[in-house]
Amino acid sequence: MSENHSRFGPKNQIAAGLFLMLWSVIGWLSLIGSPALWVNEYGVDPGPSLLPIISLTILSLGALALIGTGALQTRVQQHAGTRYWAMQIKGSLMPGLFAISLIIYITLIDVVGFIPMSAIFSITWMYILGVKSGNRTYSSLLPLVAMGAFIGVSLIYFVFLYLIGVPIG
């Protein structure tokens, strides 16, 4: 694991370790919560729990190792990566909002219909992101967004709903 020292900061090691640890915890919980997997009546078949146990063990140990290395590094280099966590959360704010709005988008497609919902979704986000990109005035953004949303939505509608007949919305 020595290779990781140079490439990744200590906070990154810990964060990556925690992320992978989360997976293994969820995995172990689910595995323990399924009694059918622990019944040992499969004869020569090693059973459905063998590979999950092996994989989860590797994952848990690996995640621990990452966290451990990160912790060790932190003790060596005290000031590395200050405000790391705050930066992580702040950076993921927009993508997080986007993900949530995607879920709202797909739930509302059933209610509102594909074309109106997609139009709302695309115009809103194209506009927000356009404002964020900052090299256009608000008024010059509108025709571009309208055009972009129109082309995007009609293209998707034409290919998927019209040509292929996907029953969405």
Partner: peptide, 10 residues
């Protein structure tokens, strides 16, 4: 990008 990304997401 702001046009492209939204179309890709849809």
């Amino acid at each position: 990008d702001h046009i492209l990304l939204v179309i890709i997401a849809m």
